[in-house]
């Protein structure tokens, strides 16, 4: 077992709700108890990370394969560090230079990894829903490391972990997510965890980049509003999360210009002054500083962006730990 000194870390199996899922594909079907279990386990992992030797051997003999069909710096590195900190063996695969380039299907690739001995596969894929296809076709546990414009559950969980550490209970807190919400897997997965936590969520962006129906779809789960006016949305907000603005949105005619986007939607000091005192500024990265977020805000006192990255390792350790442990007979 993991040698945890933090008394708040996972309690004895008899008391703690057990993790039973084979896969982690999104946050939408996670129960509050499951979310809580991940966050509490992550607290223990954070403590492990702060030790002089920030490494344990809990997952010795467990093989984690990262399978990235899209480029990634932080998610892949974060998972690799997390798995190694738990003593797991890690193999990193990217689509370029692999059998994927030779035309191998996703299902065949996943089955091959299973046959090689993968216990957990962390997968990033450019097509929405791809991890669901993989999960249905393998006994290995699939962790969605981001699929198309659909979901990015570990990002949402590390965001929630970071928010809780600073803002405590999120019930009734106002969270603004601003940017290309429509195409953001981060925004979608955050929506589920935030609603489950009782937060009021405002999705904000240009009319071409915000969802039309999502707010009404989730009305039974909690409060979610959609607006195109950031100045209104940010007033009194407790947490402001800026999303990465992809430059090709302009080429595709979704926004007139980045200049206009910056004028309307950049999270800057002037706008942040309208938020609640002590409001948090977050960003899932990688940032386009000067576009969706002003550099002084990105690195200012309100910013927890670097801490998000650091917490990402602890949260991913928790997820790997829970999923690998659940697989043991």
């Amino acid at each position: 077992m993991l040698e945890l000194r933090n008394p708040e870390a996972p309690a004895s199996p008899a008391e703690a709700p057990a993790w039973t899922r084979k896969d982690l594909l999104d946050t939408d079907t996670l129960s509050n108890a499951e979310i809580q279990l991940i966050l509490e386990t992550a607290e223990g992992m954070r403590e492990v990370r702060n030790r002089p030797v920030a490494k344990v051997a809990t997952l010795r003999g467990v093989t984690v394969i990262t399978l990235f069909y899209e480029q990634s710096t932080r998610t892949r590195a974060s998972f690799e560090v997390a798995a190694k900190a738990l003593g797991a063996d890690v193999v990193n695969l990217t689509a370029s230079g692999s059998s994927v380039e030779k035309g191998e299907t996703l299902i065949d690739t996943i089955r091959t990894l299973e046959a090689i001995g993968a216990d957990l596969v962390v997968m990033r894929h450019g097509k929405s829903g791809a991890p669901y296809l993989a999960a249905r076709n393998t006994a290995a546990g699939i962790i969605n490391g981001g699929d198309g414009t659909h979901a990015h559950p570990t990002q949402a969980l590390l965001d929630l972990f970071t928010m809780r550490r600073h803002a405590g209970d999120l019930a009734g807190k106002r969270v603004v997510i601003v940017g290309d919400v429509l195409h953001s897997r981060v925004a979608r997965s955050n929506l589920w965890t935030l609603l489950a936590s009782g937060a009021d969520v405002t999705l904000c962006g240009p009319a071409t980049l915000v969802p039309r129906t999502l707010a009404s779809q989730v009305s039974e789960l909690g409060r979610c509003t959609v607006t195109t006016n950031l100045d209104d949305a940010i007033s009194g907000a407790d947490i402001v999360m800026a999303l990465r603005m992809q430059k090709e949105r302009q080429e595709k005619g979704l926004i007139p210009s980045l200049r206009e986007y910056i004028a309307g939607y950049q999270v800057n000091a002037r706008r942040l002054a309208k938020a609640r005192p002590g409001a948090l500024v977050m960003h899932p990265g990688p940032m386009n500083e000067g576009i969706e977020i002003a550099p002084d805000v990105a690195h200012g006192v309100a910013s927890v962006i670097e801490e998000q990255v650091a917490n990402g390792v602890a949260v991913r350790m928790a997820i790997l730990y829970l999923m690998a442990t659940a697989r043991r007979p």
Binding site: G129, T149, H150, L182, H183, R185, R188, R212, L214, Q217
Partner: peptide, 11 residues
């Protein structure tokens, strides 16, 4: 294009 595509992140 509608509620399901928005939910699933599909074009």
């Amino acid at each position: 294009e509608g509620s399901v595509s928005e939910r699933l992140g599909l074009p």
